[in-house]
Design a protein around this nucleic acid. Sequence first.
RNA 1: GGAGACGUGGCCGAGCGGUUAGGCAGAGGUCUGCAAAACCUUCUACGGCGGUUCAAAUCCGCCCGUCUCCUCCA
Length: 489
Amino acid sequence: MQIHISNTLTRSVESFTSARAGVVRMYSCGPTPYNYAHIGNLRAFLFPDLLQRVLRVVGGYKVQWVMNVTDIDDKTIRDSAVGSAEWRTEMGEQSADPKQNLKRFTQFYTDEFVRDIEAVGIRKSGFYKMPFATDYFPQMQDLIRRIAANGFAYERGGSVYFNVGAWRKADKYGKLFNIDFDNFQEGVRIDADEYERESVSDFVLWKGHKEGEPAWDFEFEGKDVVGRPGWHIECSAMAHEILELPFDIHTGGVDLCFPHHEDEIAQSKAGYGVEPVNYWCHNEFLEVEGEKMSKSKGNFFTLRDLLQKGIDTLDVRWLMLSVHYASRLNFTFAGLESGRKARLRVQEYIYDLWERAQGAIAPATTHESAQSLRTSVFQELANDLQTPKALAELFTYLNRNPASGVDATQAASLLGFLQELNNIFDVWHFSARPAQMLNVPPEVQHLAEERWKAKRSKNFAESDRLRGAIAALGFVVKDTKDGFALEKA
RNA sequence: GGAGACGUGGCCGAGCGGUUAGGCAGAGGUCUGCAAAACCUUCUACGGCGGUUCAAAUCCGCCCGUCUCCUCCA
């Protein structure tokens, strides 16, 4: 099915075509491993995961999905430095070598990151590659030299900068983001540390060495410029090395449009001479209970915060997938619960279908085919990942075609589609409805049987008394058609 | 200050000029001694004020409000 996707370059939904037949090359700005992933991070990675799944399942493409690890930047250096309060004992002893500290620090949080994203259904095996920035210094240095050779970079005070003023004369600067050039100050340079507010300035490609920071040699125009790469150059060099330019899709959060992605475009084109990416796709932020998530507001959550509250990771995944990626998502606990019920309703339907697919069941009442459901759901997904509409189509179908009216053949074909759909949503189980495997103490079992007898002889007072006794032991009795079931309270 | 996004019923969330979005909650019902579960049915809407139009949640203007980016930020 033809995929359509919103492209930030044109601010419109475009029909998607891959540069190479049948294969989509896609790059996502990945984590900066300096802390545990928060729920905003999760959204930023669930979006490209959804996109690549839709490209595979609905679009029929092979996808080469690259997500980098920004394991060197201001924050990872700061927090891995000797004496940092952020250093954890699990990382081992700090050494006198800042490079070794940085590696241990970032490796620790990268491992934690992978654990967290896998918990919400992003499989590490889905990545074509997950490159570390620190493994691509030669490529970054090569790109910087190319940019300089083309006349768009210069060294000053031990750092190398991109010359935005010169570049603006050669190409458009401001493809993703409308830049206010009235405030542009030509020749003003920025490092992250000192920045002239309200000015667009030359950005750093290679940062000169500072005491106590990790640094690498870099021979640039005859000088050894000891230091480390700027943030933007990392993605440009890795994407070029691994995917080759131009590749198809680049994703990231909306905040990255400027300066990060804008600078990526400028660097790649200034150095390699080609427009690097055909489709830029950005996900919106999320809010928590209607407010911006921030530590000061006390509404800042990592995934493990949620797990400690007993939240099911599938509910987190569902909530994030049930809102369009380009809309702001209001993350609330009520929303998690509401989504959970919706998800389990589909799960119940699947269990019912499973049962019906096995046995000889009464003939089907009239209903719509699994194929028509597949078409309507996939059409919505193919249209810029309209998950809310796709789910609405699914629920509309469920409402109109209850499992009770489905025969074995139809159940099988519906299950086939739902399994296909689950290659995208990945939140349902396909099996017989699991039996309640509970360790029921004999005492409780005995009480429950006594209660059932009392109930059947219509001795309701005794029945209720026994129910109370069972509850006191931590179990709940639920009556079914021809018996009772025990559950943990 | 500059650039941009958005304001839909109790909550979440589609909608891109005329047709039921959907989910959760609520209400009613089936089943139950009761309860729970499950299933069925069902109510409530488009921030405000103008304008365009036979017709506006949907287009235009103004106002109010929220948010994002311009500085590390998913």
